[in-house]
Amino acid sequence: MKTFLQYRIALQTLQSNRLRRDFSDLSAIPMYEPVGEFFFEEMYGPRDFSQRDNDARRLQHFLHIVPGVHLHDIEEILELISITADLDDDLTRRLIALGAPITFDEEIYEQVYREADNYDLRMHQLELIRNCLLNVYRLSRSHLLGMALESSGLIARLAGFEAGHTFLLKGYRALRDVSEIDHFAVTIYSRELIRLDRIYAKEQV
């Protein structure tokens, strides 16, 4: 019998592959390739993110060693991580309750996605994704922040915050050489909104 974690990783694998397929044109732009990898692997990749998510909840205790970053700067990032984890957990439970095979396809995925009936929450998730991309891009302009993240790995490890620190550092590295993020953020938002409305059979407004 397959475990909850196995179904969860199967879900994340499908989502990551779907994102890579739907946004392959963005990843093909050299400037956006590192951002795409971060988005596909570190946000939605097929792995157990429980340690990263636990670290994110304790992030405020780490920020005092990262100059130029305050809790209000990353509140939406923390909310996005939390909402995404909850939504994925819910879909995983629905797949198991449906008796779906571990090799479920995109049709079954969209069926449970629609049956979850949380359009407004999905809309909020999309808004958070767009806002987080824009805000983290703004933060990545700070060389002081980059120096602090690059030099604080040992402190983070000793403090039991290594997974959260690695997530922040990879995000910074993915965005530091990007000259503008608007096209990436707007494309993600607009295409995912079209997909969301298609799944819920809502008309575009």
Rank of each mutant, 00 (worst) to 15 (best):
T3K: 03
F4H: 13
Q6E: 11
A10C: 09
A10S: 11
A10R: 10
Q15I: 15
S16M: 07
S16W: 13
F23D: 07
D25C: 00
E33K: 13
V35L: 06
V35M: 06
G36D: 15
F38A: 00
F38D: 01
F38V: 05
F39H: 10
E41Y: 13
E42I: 03
E42K: 12
E42Q: 11
Y44E: 06
D48K: 04
N54D: 12
A56I: 11
A56Q: 12
R57M: 03
F62N: 05
L63D: 07
I65W: 10
I65T: 14
G68D: 04
V69T: 14
H70A: 07
L71F: 15
L71T: 03
E76F: 09
L80N: 05
L80C: 04
S82C: 07
T84Q: 14
A85V: 05
L87E: 10
D89G: 00
L95S: 01
G99R: 02
G99C: 08
I102S: 02
I102R: 00
T103L: 06
D105N: 04
D105Q: 02
E106I: 11
E107P: 00
E110W: 04
V112T: 03
Y113E: 04
E115F: 07
D117Q: 07
L121G: 03
L126P: 14
L128A: 04
L128C: 08
I129M: 13
R130Y: 04
V136E: 13
Y137C: 00
R141W: 03
H143S: 11
H143K: 12
L145K: 11
G146L: 02
M147F: 05
S151I: 04
S152N: 15
S152A: 12
G153Y: 08
G153M: 14
A156K: 14
F161Q: 02
G164Y: 08
G164D: 01
G164C: 02
H165N: 04
H165M: 05
K170P: 01
G171E: 12
R176F: 12
S179T: 12
D182R: 15
H183G: 00
F184T: 07
V186N: 08
T187A: 01
R191Q: 15
E192Y: 02
E192P: 00
L193K: 11
I194G: 00
I194R: 05
R195F: 07
R195Q: 14
D197E: 14
R198Q: 08
K202R: 15
Q204T: 12
